[in-house]
Each structure stands twice: as structure tokens, then as C-alpha cells.
Design a protein around this nucleic acid. Structure first.
Length: 310
DNA sequence: CGTGTTTGACCAGCGC
DNA sequence: GCGCTGGTCAAACACG
């Protein structure tokens, strides 16, 4: 968040079209002010206004979509930050890993943020020091916040998992559940799910391996595991090449009722907090040069298209 | 009856 | 070698 370089990122979103060099609108406003001096025929003026209105509507729709997408990204980013804090606290108190099996190429997947690409950057010294043999298997971790009162160890990520074991481990009072991907018979991916010892409301899902099949669509998941969709658990989604999970806690429209519950949990959040988040998000976005650049590109792209049509 | 879950038993790696 | 621990297997069980 080092936004030391402050640039004038004031967004000109054409919110007030009267300030723009819009001939039609300016003509109208001028015409309203000097109603005796109407030069354009009314039909032509009306057509221009309708065209302008349609253009603004389209622009508004596009911006709304972008804002929605960015809102999702923001939520994911916030979750990422929270999980980073959790990871740091875990690392501070975690005991030394004894077993070879635990020599893992951990890339703590921040829920829904890797966008299908595993974060394999060696920013962490430990991961760079990993022996070569330990990096053979693709292992990633996902943290999913759930209701602490919910005892289930189910993390819905879009894949179909078959539970094949459960163990109580030494360093954690909560049991660890072992899952295999059952969406494809030959899929080698395994998953371990265990509640965080520090924060019982956080489920830690450790993915091992890479799916050798495509990510099932929500409809496929619903067909293959109708029972799963009815369970009130957190919903996460993964991508085929990299088992990442997307927290649906703050995403409207997840898979099934589980997502509904989580959405409701978000709805239950104090409105003040949500307002602060929205303000913070808006402030962050307007400060972000990437956002303004993307927005400008989108708008300019639309203009080009309209010019082609016109 | 088919499918998924549970759970105790078993196996293998690691430290002492 | 022995014990501890994590991971896996498979029979029993539950559920629709």
C-alpha cells in the first residue's frame, strides 16, 4: 500500500456530462437558458439526447460491472491480508516440522487471489531453501473462514472430494480430514482439511498435487454432489492447474445454499463496517494508477467501438 | 442397493 | 530397535 507517489488520479467518469464538450447536451442546456434562440430542430436535438443517454447508460453499465469485479477483487485482497496475518502468527508458534512429508512447497494460497496461477515466487527465503525433491509435488494451502460453531471440515472449492480418513494430530486438538479428488477417477490430488489451532474459525485446506481434469462447472458440481450443495459450509472455488480456493464469504452467488449462508453472514455485518470498507475501497481504487489506466482503456475501447458503429 | 462417511487398524518415516 | 506420529486402507455404517 505504499502509495507514496501521489498522482492526480481524479477519475473523469463523465458523471457530469454537462461539463464535457458534448454538443447535444450543451445545446440543450444553452437552449434552456436561452429558450428563444433554438437553432437545432427539435427532432434532431431529441435524437442526439437519446443517443447520448444510451451512451451514458452503456458507460454506466460498464462501470458498474467493473466496479463489481473490482469489489470482488478487493474482498479477496482483504481476505488475503487477513490470512497473511494468520499465517504469520502460525509461523511464529508452529513447531518444527519433523516429517519428510511435511517438507512442502507451501505457497499459501490466498483465497481466490492467485487467479489460477500459483504464487511460486521465492519471496520467502524458506521456500527458496527447499530441497529440490521437496518441490516435486505441488502443494498449496488455503485458508477458509467458517463459522466456529460449524464442526464440519468441509471446504467447498468446486471439486468433488471423497473423504478417506480422519486423524487427530499432535499439534492440533481438532481432527484433520483427508480427502481425495473423486471428480476424475485418476485425479491424484489430495486435500487435508484441519481447523487452525490458533483460530478455530479458520479451516486450513492443504492441497497436494495438480488436478488432471478440468474444473467442474457449478452445474456439474450440483449434479455430482447434490448433497454437498446443501451443506451450510464455506464455499471455495479452485482452478484446474492450480488448486487455489476462492472464499465465497463475500461473493454473492456461490454454489448452493452454503454460499447463501455465507452471503447472509456478510449481510449480518454491521452496516458501518461495510460503509467503511466501501469508502476504503473507493479511495484505494481512485489512488490506483492501474485502475485508472484500465478504466481509461475500457472507456476508450467503448468509444472506439461506438465510433465504428457510428 | 449404491454411494459416501466413519473409524479402527495398519504401514512407513523419523527421532532417540 | 523402539516408540511416536502422520497418512492410508478397508470394513462397517448411514443415508437417500
Amino acid at each position: 500500500m505504499g502509495s507514496s507517489a501521489w498522482v492526480d488520479t481524479t477519475l473523469d467518469l463523465n458523471i457530469n456530462p454537462f461539463h464535457h464538450g458534448n454538443k447535444a447536451l450543451r445545446t440543450k442546456s444553452e437552449g434552456e437558458m436561452a429558450d428563444s434562440d433554438v437553432k437545432l430542430p427539435f427532432k434532431q436535438e431529441n435524437a442526439d439526447l437519446v443517443e447520448e443517454l444510451n451512451r451514458i447508460k452503456a458507460e454506466n453499465k460498464k462501470l458498474t460491472e467493473m466496479l463489481t469485479a473490482l469489489g470482488h477483487c478487493y474482498n479477496d485482497l482483504q481476505n488475503k491480508f487477513m490470512e497473511l496475518v494468520t499465517i504469520n502468527s502460525d509461523n511464529e508458534v508452529s513447531t518444527s516440522k519433523k516429517r519428510k512429508a511435511e517438507c512442502e512447497d507451501y505457497s499459501p494460497n490466498m483465497i481466490g487471489f492467485s487467479n489460477g496461477n500459483k504464487e511460486t515466487s521465492c519471496s520467502d527465503e524458506d521456500s527458496c531453501k527447499m530441497p529440490r525433491e521437496c518441490i516435486k509435488t505441488t502443494i498449496s494451502r488455503t485458508y477458509v473462514r467458517t463459522n466456529p460453531s460449524d464442526n464440519s471440515l468441509i471446504v467447498r472449492d468446486g471439486y468433488q472430494w471423497r473423504k478417506y480418513g480422519q486423524k487427530v494430530t499432535k499439534d492440533n486438538p481438532s481432527p484433520r480430514a483427508y480427502f481425495k479428488c473423486s471428480f476424475a477417477p485418476s485425479c491424484p490430488v489430495k486435500r487435508k482439511v484441519q481447523r487452525s489451532a490458533e483460530d478455530p474459525s479458520v479451516l486450513v485446506a492443504t492441497y497436494e498435487g495438480v488436478h488432471n481434469h478440468a474444473h467442474p462447472s457449478p452445474s456439474e458440481v450440483a449434479i455430482l454432489s447434490p448433497k454437498c450443495s446443501a451443506k451450510p459450509v464455506s464455499c471455495a472455488s479452485t482452478r484446474p492447474s492450480a488448486p487455489t480456493a476462492t472464499l465465497a464469504l463475500m461473493q454473492p452467488g456461490g454454489y448452493g445454499d452454503g454460499a447463501k449462508k455465507k452471503t447472509q453472514e456478510v449481510d449480518d455485518a454491521p452496516a458501518a463496517i461495510q460503509q467503511v470498507l466501501v469508502q476504503h475501497m473507493a479511495a484505494s481504487l481512485t489512488r490506483n494508477p492501474n485502475f485508472t489506466a484500465a478504466l481509461a482503456a475500457a472507456i476508450s475501447g467503448r468509444d472506439i467501438d461506438e465510433m465504428r458503429i457510428g
